[in-house]
Design a protein around this nucleic acid. Sequence first.
DNA 1: ACATGTGAAAAAATTCACAGCA
DNA 2: TGCTGTGAATTTTTTCACATGT
Lengths: 223, 223
Amino acid sequence: MAESRDKTPAPDSGSSIPRAVVSRLSLYLRELQHLVRSGQETTSSNQLGPLLGFTDAQVRKDLAYFGQFGYPGIGYRCQELIQAIRGILGTDREWPVALMGIGNLGRALLRYKGFEQQGFRITAAFDIDSEKTGTTIEGVVVYDAAEMEEVVRRYGIQLGVIAVPAEAAQGTADSMVHAGLTGIMNFAPVTISLPDHVQQVGIDLAIELEQLSFAVVNRHDKR
Amino acid sequence: MAESRDKTPAPDSGSSIPRAVVSRLSLYLRELQHLVRSGQETTSSNQLGPLLGFTDAQVRKDLAYFGQFGYPGIGYRCQELIQAIRGILGTDREWPVALMGIGNLGRALLRYKGFEQQGFRITAAFDIDSEKTGTTIEGVVVYDAAEMEEVVRRYGIQLGVIAVPAEAAQGTADSMVHAGLTGIMNFAPVTISLPDHVQQVGIDLAIELEQLSFAVVNRHDKR
DNA sequence: ACATGTGAAAAAATTCACAGCA
DNA sequence: TGCTGTGAATTTTTTCACATGT
């Protein structure tokens, strides 16, 4: 909001962006928001990088994929960079999200407060258990999975979260694709296959603990 | 178990293992377990890789960091490779885990069934809310956070999970380090700093959705 | 014939280091 | 002076391709 001055960047052109760059972008965003809350108006690659364990050059190179956002001699204006990164990530708008599976994890996600702040709102939930369908949790209606296509269209939902048991994950994913979703976040500990036009992000909680286990057993890397 | 034959590997020597390699190892493990459940006894780099979207060479190179596990002309014996990867990741034993914070997410993690199968057991939970301390959830006692050091020592816990609000995360992390934990999985959406000898893995649910948002907005990579 | 393990080649990502602007 | 943006150098990771073992 407010602000102007056109140091308009070249919004990328040909080559595709490395995934690692995008994931650092999210970290920059989180840290910038933190800096703003603590009252800072500007920052620099040399402050931001080290806060996250990266070098200053890395920060600048990452941002350079998307344009020019800094001011030589000054650094970056936090609010401005936040807006820019939001634009890049696509979170400068609100995304309605569909949640599949109202088990322990599903309910926790429904109540999680961290999504809205970043532009995501769980708008509809689905389950196949008739004990659950028709109820409302945190103001979100739980529909029968059979209604997915209709509800997804009604709310213009593009993103969905899989929080069903592993055995049901692929089938659920297929329904989601059929209903028209184009991005799927999968918490089930299985590989799911999707058409090329549907994007996915997988989070396997046990795998994350395995990574931690490895790091602990092999601690000597001193990073 | 059983099995023998010493094609004993060189268990790595000098250089450190890329993180990406370790994370693929976990995926290989998950897929191998899936293959075994579907009755397969052996597999090959050329089957395993493509199942996960990698090349066969990548699979072989990754495994080669840790030793020789395959049989030319045959491939890999699933059970054997599973055991080997477990040994590498350190999940061939059981890890007691401490859980900090019994909010929505904490309770969901406590009830999550996917951990035990991979060698992790939440052994003790902690909170500061006196409404919660002293209760038992899923057979796990909720202690007051002040008892952390004593309980961690009693059970020989090394790994801990942070599921407290963002504002409390760094303080909780400090207590965990003080209590002697050496690996921390952090669900709070903030950067936490830890001494070098303490390992961490961070999971920020909103960030994962941001990654998905980016992928959907920029879908054209055709991977 | 089939599939591993691995040097060598290629590609990609990171770091360096500096010209240029505030 | 302070800090960005960026070519060039370096390091890391991935892919190739083939000798070797079954």
